[in-house]
């Protein structure tokens, strides 16, 4: 079918339950899009809503995109409750700025919780560019752990859980401090909650190690015009200037007025999750 708007029809071909709350959706697109790691798509469910989701993987030859979707709001709840193999969604993208990849670099990848999904596609692309990978994944509880075996195939992987059921007891910051004290990395990539990313940014800054992070904000237009996803005080937009940013952006984030802006309309600034 000829596309008359930006939405590419996509059919779900496989659903995998990763944890109680998180599922992996493999969807076959009607048209090839070739995203870069770190970029995202807007997934539109007609009459329900539209949410931003990063690419967890992209299998080019088969036009298959992989999205990891946690149940956090109206649209994600609808998807988890109603979508089966054969269900249809519509994909707009790829959007935003991707991670930068340096050939042959020694890389450290850090992901917390379900936000780690884009790191998988990044890890695959880094390996294609002959990079060496160390991966640290942090989860709240043992029951939240997912994707670990997939990452182990790609590089040396360490896990932390706060309840200590799997891997190191603690947060991934505990593992990071240990790892960064013994090794130097050319590049650190991180995804996860903003408090976590700020801690990672402080450590990388102290060690003078380049860091790229994937940021979350409520995304509306996805094309850099509505201004909803602004990060203060830089005025950078997550949907267009990001979602991947130099980690230094986190060092300048303060409780600024954009948070008043969003809070006052009952949407927490951090909460792309609220719309999901």
């Amino acid at each position: 079918m000829v596309l008359r708007d930006p939405y590419i029809p996509a059919t779900i071909i496989e659903i995998n339950q990763l944890t109680e709350n998180i599922r992996e959706y493999c969807v076959k697109l009607d048209k090839s899009i070739d995203p870069e790691p770190g970029q995202f798509a807007m997934i539109w469910i007609p009459k329900v809503g539209e949410i931003p989701i990063s690419f967890a993987d992209w299998i080019c030859e088969e036009k298959i995109a992989v999205f990891v979707i946690a149940r956090v709001g109206k649209v994600t709840g609808y998807i988890q409750e109603n979508f089966k193999t054969g269900s249809k969604m519509y994909v707009r993208g790829p959007l935003g700025r991707s991670f930068t990849i340096r050939e042959g670099a020694k890389c450290l990848l850090m992901g917390g919780g379900y936000g780690l999904a884009p790191l998988y596609y990044l890890a695959k692309k880094l390996l294609e560019k002959k990079c060496r990978l160390k991966i640290i994944l942090g989860f709240k509880n043992g029951s939240d752990v997912f994707y670990v075996n997939k990452f182990r195939v790609l590089g040396d992987t360490e896990i932390s859980t706060e309840d200590g059921k799997i891997g190191v007891r603690g947060t991934l910051i505990d593992v990071l401090e240990k790892v960064m004290n013994s090794e130097r990395y050319d590049m650190v990539y991180a995804c996860g909650r903003e408090e976590l990313l700020i801690k990672i940014a402080l450590i990388c800054n102290a060690k003078n190690t380049p860091l790229e992070v994937s940021m979350e904000r409520l995304i509306k237009c996805g094309q850099g015009v509505c201004g909803t996803c602004v990060i203060e005080p830089s005025g950078l937009l997550v949907c267009r200037d990001g979602p991947v940013f130099d980690g230094k952006i986190l060092l300048e984030i303060k409780n600024h007025s954009s948070e008043n802006f969003t809070r006052s309309i009952k949407i927490v600034c951090r909460g792309a999750s609220d719309a999901k």
């Binding site: 539209e50 509306k220 719309a275």
Partner: peptide, 19 residues
């Protein structure tokens, strides 16, 4: 304050935009 509408809120048609 006005929360505005749910997504989708902006469609790029190539020849123009509907928001």
């Amino acid at each position: 304050p006005r929360e505005g509408y749910w997504n989708p809120v902006f469609v790029d048609l190539g020849y123009g935009y509907v928001n």
